[in-house]
Amino acid sequence: MPIPDDVTGDEIDPDVRQELMSLPKGLAEDVARNLVMVAQLIDEDPEKAYEYSRIALRLASRVAAVREAAGFAAYATQKYSEALAEFRAARRMTGSVELWPVMADCERGLGRPERALAMAGEPEVQKLDKAGQVEMRLVAAGARRDMGQLDAAIVTLQSPELASSANHPWTARLRYAYADALLAAGREREAREWFAKALEADKDGSTDASDRLAELDGVEFVDAFDDSDEENGQDDADDLDEDDDLDERDEQDGDKG
């Protein structure tokens, strides 16, 4: 697949570059450039990112970073079985538990929330950093909701991290998940409060908390310019053109007279 000339492969994380040093230089550069394309496209065009990840995988399947990237690309395209296989392979290679929460979420994606809950209770969770533990809590709450256990999902999200006034990278998403669970349980007043708190912490717009708040407040957004406006504008322009033509003909008739 085509890769822009300005993508050199040097853009990748230094740790990944270190892993690729086990490959021949030319091959390492090819893999690195494909991994850069995965990173650049995974949010805006996950299907294309997935295609680049498959190329990197064919070139260097024994590199853990490549297996991980392939896993995230498959996850982004909802290929959960494939993603889980890649994450497991990466974990075997590195021994790290970092991917444990996303592996559990793949189980949810495969319709096995009970497995995700079982993973939430495994010793690996205690080895995760704070961000990973919060992510695992979000996955566990999602699994509870999958199983129709709304009250249990709400309780799962109640934690020191939720109560904290500090703003961390996970704060907005945690508050948002709590608000959404409250709303699903019919606790609208509390849900509105937590959507507002999520919005307050959401500095980079990672959630749609503002839209959810607007819905709860009965605010309806209307496009300032829609197709009907464009059509009306074109009709007005056509009318003006017709008027100009009539004026021009009147002037010509007057000259003839």
Rank of each mutant, 00 (worst) to 15 (best):
residue 94 T to I: 06
residue 106 C to K: 11
residue 124 E to T: 04
residue 153 A to W: 11
residue 142 G to L: 15
residue 107 E to G: 01
residue 156 T to A: 11
residue 144 R to W: 14
residue 145 R to S: 13
residue 130 K to V: 06
residue 103 M to H: 10
residue 141 A to I: 08
residue 108 R to K: 10
residue 125 V to Q: 11
residue 159 S to L: 05
residue 141 A to S: 06
residue 119 M to A: 11
residue 106 C to Q: 09
residue 114 E to F: 00
residue 109 G to K: 02
residue 123 P to H: 04
residue 90 A to K: 01
residue 96 S to W: 05
residue 127 K to A: 13
residue 147 M to Q: 15
residue 115 R to D: 06
residue 152 A to W: 02
residue 150 L to D: 09
residue 90 A to N: 15
residue 138 L to E: 03
residue 144 R to F: 07
residue 122 E to K: 00
residue 143 A to L: 13
residue 91 R to N: 03
residue 96 S to E: 04
residue 129 D to K: 13
residue 100 W to M: 01
residue 136 M to F: 12
residue 146 D to F: 12
residue 155 V to R: 15
residue 92 R to M: 05
residue 108 R to V: 02
residue 93 M to A: 14
residue 109 G to Q: 05
residue 128 L to D: 06
residue 128 L to N: 12
residue 99 L to P: 04
residue 95 G to E: 09
residue 99 L to N: 08
residue 105 D to A: 02
residue 131 A to V: 06
residue 143 A to P: 03
residue 137 R to H: 04
residue 132 G to M: 10
residue 136 M to C: 01
residue 128 L to K: 10
residue 114 E to A: 13
residue 121 G to K: 11
residue 147 M to R: 14
residue 115 R to K: 14
residue 116 A to F: 00
residue 108 R to P: 02
residue 99 L to H: 00
residue 104 A to E: 12
residue 104 A to M: 10
residue 139 V to L: 12
residue 130 K to F: 10
residue 93 M to W: 07
residue 98 E to P: 01
residue 118 A to I: 03
residue 150 L to R: 06
residue 117 L to A: 00
residue 138 L to T: 08
residue 148 G to F: 09
residue 120 A to S: 13
residue 117 L to W: 02
residue 90 A to M: 00
residue 122 E to W: 09
residue 98 E to T: 01
residue 98 E to N: 01
residue 154 I to M: 13
residue 136 M to H: 05
residue 138 L to K: 06
residue 126 Q to R: 09
residue 115 R to W: 01
residue 120 A to I: 01
residue 123 P to F: 05
residue 105 D to Q: 08
residue 128 L to C: 07
residue 108 R to S: 04
residue 99 L to W: 10
residue 141 A to N: 07
residue 125 V to E: 08
residue 121 G to N: 08
residue 138 L to I: 05
residue 133 Q to F: 12
residue 111 G to S: 08
residue 90 A to W: 10
residue 99 L to I: 05
residue 91 R to T: 15
residue 124 E to D: 14
residue 131 A to T: 11
residue 159 S to D: 06
residue 115 R to C: 00
residue 144 R to T: 07
